[in-house]
Design a protein around this nucleic acid. Structure first.
Length: 214
DNA sequence: CGCGCGACTGCTTTTACATCA
DNA sequence: CTTGATGTAAAAGCAGTCGCG
């Protein structure tokens, strides 16, 4: 079983790139195989590694020289655990350069999803794998959505506060009007603007008032 | 220690195609 | 032969999570 995975993964990944990465994912999902290591172990791409970096030791040396350089980046999207005893986990983190991030951001502003050709050309421009571009866009969409949710939540909170203030104000007004009404009905009616009543009601009240006087 | 973010898994949805009544 | 229903696999997207820096 493990051999099957190894052979298939290595051959396909090397042979067909992005398409196969998706297929691997899909097949793993369909077969319910939870083989976390496969993707990483068999991906020996060093596309962003400077040429002198051949091992993790080199990577560490390189990092020491670049530590103050924000543009430091290295593609270590492979499992060094096979080659290096210092690491216990296969997952290594890539930091995109400022230029790469800027280009991705610009592209994201234009369109939040990419088709195959857009992804491919962007990946070439960035010297990244299409899968990395895809992941970046996925994460970007997710985080944009999260931010938007936070903004919406804040907006709704303010709406709620303002509505509840308005509600209090209106309740107070109703109370004042009720006490006015109880204090003297006709006074209350007279205080109401005529426009607030329909003509027939207005007439009735006026007649009633006149009748009351005699 | 908490945060940002690249990478991953598992799941759902969409799409294309095949088969059958 | 055409058509609608159904099944299946591939592809893509998303939510949730991990873990490095």
């Amino acid at each position: 079983m493990a051999d099957e995975h190894s052979n298939t993964g290595l051959g396909l990944r090397l042979g067909f790139g992005e398409y196969v990465a998706c297929r691997e994912r899909s097949e793993k999902g369909n077969n319910n195989n939870n083989n976390k290591a496969m993707d990483c172990n068999l991906d020996f791409s060093f596309s962003l590694c400077p040429k002198e970096i051949k091992s993790l030791d080199d990577h560490v040396k390189h990092k020491q020289t670049m530590v103050e350089d924000q543009d430091y980046h290295v593609n270590i999207n492979c499992d060094y655990s096979n080659n290096n005893k210092n690491t216990t986990s296969g997952r290594k983190k890539l930091r995109l350069t400022k230029q790469q991030s800027a280009l991705l951001e610009d592209s994201f502003k234009l369109h939040t999803t990419l088709n195959q050709s857009q992804k491919q050309s962007l990946a070439e421009q960035l010297n990244l794998k299409p899968r990395q571009v895809e992941v970046w866009f996925q994460n970007r969409r997710a985080r944009t959505k999260l931010k938007q949710t936070e903004v919406d939540c804040e907006f709704l909170k303010k709406c709620c506060e303002s509505l509840s203030d308005e509600n209090k104000r209106l309740k107070k007004e109703v109370q004042e009007l009720q006490s006015l009404k109880e204090g003297g009905g006709s006074q209350f009616i007279q205080q109401l603007p005529k426009a607030a009543m329909c003509p027939s009601c207005c007439d009735k009240i006026m007649k009633k008032n006149e009748a009351g006087r005699y």
